[in-house]
């Protein structure tokens, strides 16, 4: 199996889908001649032509609206929002409209569109190139929200997203693009949307995470294994619909749980996971469910020191695991 980076996995998935299905096309800012700011669509314009690889104006509302219009008329657009931080003008098109197409037409129409959204910090991007915005969309019924952590998951899930008949927001953590490498099988495969993945098995506690921070969790778990604390790490992979079954099965086994994410804490995914555990697995708990998340500040600070303070790290996670283990 060839090893590739996350961005290469994304590129391969999109390329193979566009080769497989002529209704799939891609659009976004600088994705054509420039190949995208992260080079997700490098070479696409030469392979597929400007008709299927469309450079758009810097206007996210239009990107969302055009994608929706194409989707309800039989195409399968894959639009790139250059940075997740800039998605807000398109929220009416995504949440106000696309999420409600199937429900509002009693299933007569669907909107098979994908928005690829680079997100997340730890990249010195400051206030406007670092945000974690996934929870705003994970809250919305009618959308599917994916946030893979590894190249294998990125490729298999992006293919599933493109083939899905409903709008999918596909979050790609910028920091993982070139830093995280992993084996990806040759050829076509898909990973079902809505399935979490136990990335490490353990018996003493369950850590639930996704995206970049998942890798820090695995690193912390490896450290703690040397201290005799056996940690299970669950990668959500999909944020809506949540795979509560996998989470609950793990927590029923370990009786302790912690959710780790880079996004801020209040109203975050961690709160939802904690609530599900409290509702469904109360009698199996041996400790309060913990959340380790970003601090309650409006955006990623620009100062490198403050950014490091904001971001979860393997060390912070290990400290929290020790506390929970000692409870």
């Amino acid at each position: 199996m060839p090893e590739m980076t996350v961005i290469e996995a994304v590129r391969e998935a999109l390329r193979e889908e566009m080769e497989r299905d002529t209704t799939v096309f891609t659009m976004g800012e600088d994705i054509g001649a420039r190949g995208g700011v992260f080079l997700a669509t490098e070479g696409f314009i030469d392979q597929f032509g400007a008709g299927r690889v469309i450079d758009t104006p810097l206007a996210e509302a239009s990107i969302g609206g055009i994608a929706l219009g194409a989707a309800v008329n039989g195409m399968r657009p894959v639009a790139e929002i250059e940075f997740g931080d800039f998605i807000w003008p398109a929220v009416n098109q995504i949440i106000g409209e696309a999420a409600r197409v199937r429900y509002g037409t009693q299933g007569r129409r669907t909107a098979p569109m994908v928005l690829r959204v680079p997100y997340g910090g730890g990249v010195r991007g400051g206030l406007f190139h670092s945000q974690s915005i996934e929870v705003a969309f994970a809250h919305q019924p009618g959308l599917k929200v994916i946030a893979p952590a590894t190249p294998y998951d990125a490729k298999g899930l992006l293919k599933s997203a493109i083939r899905d008949d409903d709008p999918v927001i596909f979050f790609e953590h910028k920091r993982t693009y070139r830093l995280v490498k992993g084996d990806v099988p040759d050829g076509d495969y898909t990973i079902p949307i809505g399935q979490a993945d136990v990335k490490r098995t353990g018996s003493d506690m369950t850590i639930v995470s996704y995206g970049l921070v998942l890798h820090y969790c695995l690193e912390a778990a490896a450290t703690l294994a040397e201290e005799g604390i056996d940690v299970e790490v669950v990668d959500l992979r999909t944020l809506r619909p949540l795979d509560t079954g996998t989470v609950l099965e793990s927590v029923r086994k370990t009786s302790k749980a912690m959710v780790v994410h880079e996004d801020t804490k209040a109203g975050g995914i961690g709160g939802e996971i904690a609530a599900v555990i409290a509702e469904e697995a109360f009698e199996d708990l041996d400790a309060p469910v913990k959340r380790l998340a970003g601090p309650e500040v409006p955006a990623m600070p620009f100062s490198p020191l403050l950014e490091a303070e904001f971001m979860p790290s393997a060390e912070k996670i290990a400290t929290a695991i020790r506390e929970l283990a000692a409870y």
Binding site: T150, Y152, R200, H215, R291, P295, E309
Partner: peptide, 30 residues
């Protein structure tokens, strides 16, 4: 790391954080 293999260690952050007090603000957020 499941079927895909490969985790990474952020050595720069490791070193930085190792020099500082244990990350109080987040670790003690709960």
């Amino acid at each position: 790391v499941g079927p895909t293999g490969g985790t990474f260690r952020d050595t720069a952050l490791d070193d930085q954080l190792a020099e500082r007090a244990p990350a109080a603000s987040m670790a003690s957020a709960s």
